[in-house]
Every structure is written in structure tokens, then in C-alpha cells.
Nucleic acid binder design. Structure first.
Lengths: 189, 189
DNA sequence: TCCATTTGCCAACATGTGTTGACTTTTCTC
DNA sequence: GAGAAAAGTCAACACATGTTGGCAAATGGA
């Protein structure tokens, strides 16, 4: 009998399977429409297992929606390319495997209080500080707010609502056009 | 007996009361979390009445989420002020009584198929044509797409998520800053 | 092997949902 | 005022949800 939980292989695998299924379903249905039963079915196990492993639907969502914007240090960058760098970074994060938390959060943020609060503190903790190093502190909230509108809109239209003209935009166009906007918002030029 | 000449029929009044309550609740909770019972309670009537007057929750939502962007003819405007005019117009519509349909739609679009489809056809039928008169037809979808990201993002951040730094932006700043962005997106300059 | 622990499934509960039908009250026309 | 139609109420159904407890099966160390 070990006090230390070393590696219970089987349980870790099912736990991961549940998490993966939950990510997929939360991301495509949103918090309210996603059901424990559907997640369990997608993971190939019994709905009760979800409760045993994660405690509740709320806690499962919280765990699966966890992620980080992981912004680079903007002060160290070529000042003329801050906008483009920002957009490119966001695109990479949203499309990466580990960054799946953002679509999940965004899909539910409009109707779920926890997701909305999480989104809010995400910008407060990561975007606002990034703006502080780029210009006068007084204008940082305004610059962060403007940046937020453009980035949230891009993510919403492209990955959640999937508006055809936005989905069709190629990466270069997005980086150039929206990059120019972010450049202006972020530096206040 | 007609005691109050200017009052509408009783049935029209309750129908209007239900619609008003539904607008309020759909706008703040989203389609899934809003319940017929809650709407009925807010309207001060029995839940059954909602069914009698509107048939189903779906049809009530569809009716209440109906609205129009009602864009002005951009070709007739001062070409340098197209961006500002657009933003100012959107702000007016969203904050007007009759334009309440937009927040309703937006709040539900991320998790409700009907609302998402409605949003999609809204841009296809109103924003895209507006872009056609402002520049080359080939680039119209791209310009409309970019405009959509910025406008949806502003609406989402300010009216749905209520991100503090975006809520705090005063109207003039929004018109100036975001107007400049829309100007560039819409005219392709 | 044995047996305790882990892992899993089943049935069921409590609750909230949209929705329906039967019934009562109000309203309006003649 | 009588009677029909409209407006409103009540109880309940059928179903889906998150969640719980009991019990079987696998697992792994002694």
C-alpha cells in the first residue's frame, strides 16, 4: 500500500479520455447544451465516471477550460511589428491543441457566468499588463479594451460563429489587416 | 363596455407584455438558460399563456429576436466619414429600444443554431451589400468579413460580456478609434 | 492464491424543462 | 341579461438533466 499515488495507468487514461471528450463537446455545444451523458458516451464510459473523476459538471468545465494566452514580452519586440506579432500569436494559440480552452470559454461566455468571469480576468491579467509596457499607464485600459474588441470579434466570427467571409480570410491577410488595427490600438498612435 | 378608448385589446396587451419580458430575459440569459416559466412570471401571467400566444419557445425567440440593421446608403455619404458613420449607426441601433434584437441574437448565437444562422444571414444580407458599393466587388467579402470581426467584437465585449475597460469607453472614443478601423476595412485603403 | 482497493456499471432519485388538456372566469355581441 | 367566444388558471405529463448509492468486475500487491 502506497501513500503516494504513483501511476494508476488505467484511471489516468479514462480521466484523459473524459477530458478530451469534454473539450470537444463543450467547444462545439457550449456549457448549457453539453450534457454529462453525451460527454460520457463520447469517452466510451458510464456517466457516473465523470462524476467520480471530476466531481461535477461545473468542475469538469473549469478544469477543461483552463488555459493561458502566454503573451510574449512586447517591450522586447520590434515596435513597428507589435500588432502583427500579437495577431499571429493569438492565431497560433487558438489553433493549437493546448489552446483549445479559448474557444471553449468563448463559446460559453455569453450565457455562462463562470466563463464570462474567467474571460474577464483573462484580459485583466494578461492583456492589460501587456499594454502597460507599450505606452502611458493612464491609457492602458483604453488600449487594452480596444484590443479586446478586435481580438474577441475575430475569434467569435472565425471560430465560433464561423461566418463564411471571415473563415475564408487567409492567415496572411488577417495578420496584415488586423495586425495594423492592433498596432494602432496598442500603441495609441 | 369601452372604458378606455386608447387602450388596445386585452389580448394585445398580454402579448406585448410577454414579448417585452421575453426580450429582457432572452437578452440577459440567452436562449438555453431562459425558461418559459421565468418569462411568464416576469410578464405576470401563467406559463401556458406563452404557449397559447406564441406556440413554442422557439417561435417566441424567433419573433423577439427579429430586427434590422437598417444601414444607411453609404455611397451617398462623405467618403472620409464612412467608418465613423458606421460605428455611430451601430451604437444607436444596439442601444435603441427596437434594436434590442441584436444583443438577444448575439447572446445566444454562440450556443444556439438558429441564432447563429440568423446572425450569418444578417451580415450576408446587409453588411455585404453595403460593402459592394464602396469598392471592387471581388474584395467585398473580405472587407465585409473584417468589418464583421470588429463590430461583433465591440458588441460582444461591451454589451454581452461587459468587459470593464470596454464598457468604460465613451462614445466619442469609440466612434473615433473604431471608426478609423472600419474606414480602413470598408474602403480597403 | 487471497483479498483489499480501484474501476466500472446499473437503477434510481430529485428536479426542472417544454408542453398539453380540462376547466373556470372574464369579455363582448346580440 | 343570456350565451358564445376569448382569456386565464390549474394540474399533470413526458422527458432530459445532474447527481447519488449500491453492487459487480477488474487489478495488483502480499
Amino acid at each position: 500500500m502506497n501513500d503516494k499515488p504513483l501511476k494508476m495507468k488505467k484511471s489516468d487514461r479514462t480521466r484523459a479520455a473524459i477530458a478530451a471528450a469534454a473539450q470537444r463537446i463543450f467547444a462545439s455545444q457550449g456549457y448549457e447544451r453539453a450534457t454529462i451523458r453525451e460527454i460520457a458516451a463520447a469517452a466510451g464510459i458510464d456517466p457516473t465516471m465523470v462524476m467520480r473523476y471530476f466531481g461535477s459538471k461545473d468542475r469538469l468545465f473549469a478544469e477543461v477550460a483552463e488555459f493561458d494566452l502566454d503573451l510574449p514580452d512586447l517591450a522586447a519586440l520590434d515596435r513597428d511589428r507589435i500588432g502583427e506579432t500579437l495577431v499571429a500569436h493569438f492565431l497560433s494559440v487558438w489553433e493549437s491543441e493546448s489552446g483549445g480552452g479559448f474557444p471553449i470559454l468563448l463559446r460559453s461566455a455569453a450565457s455562462n457566468d463562470y466563463a464570462a468571469a474567467r474571460m474577464q480576468q483573462l484580459f485583466a491579467a494578461q492583456v492589460l499588463p501587456a499594454m502597460l509596457v507599450l505606452g502611458p499607464p493612464d491609457s492602458a485600459p483604453q488600449r487594452a479594451g480596444l484590443v479586446a474588441t478586435q481580438m474577441l470579434g475575430l475569434a467569435l466570427a472565425r471560430y465560433v460563429l464561423r461566418l463564411p467571409p471571415v473563415v475564408m480570410l487567409d492567415r496572411d491577410t488577417i495578420v496584415r489587416e488586423i495586425g495594423a488595427t492592433l498596432q494602432r490600438y496598442a500603441t495609441g498612435a
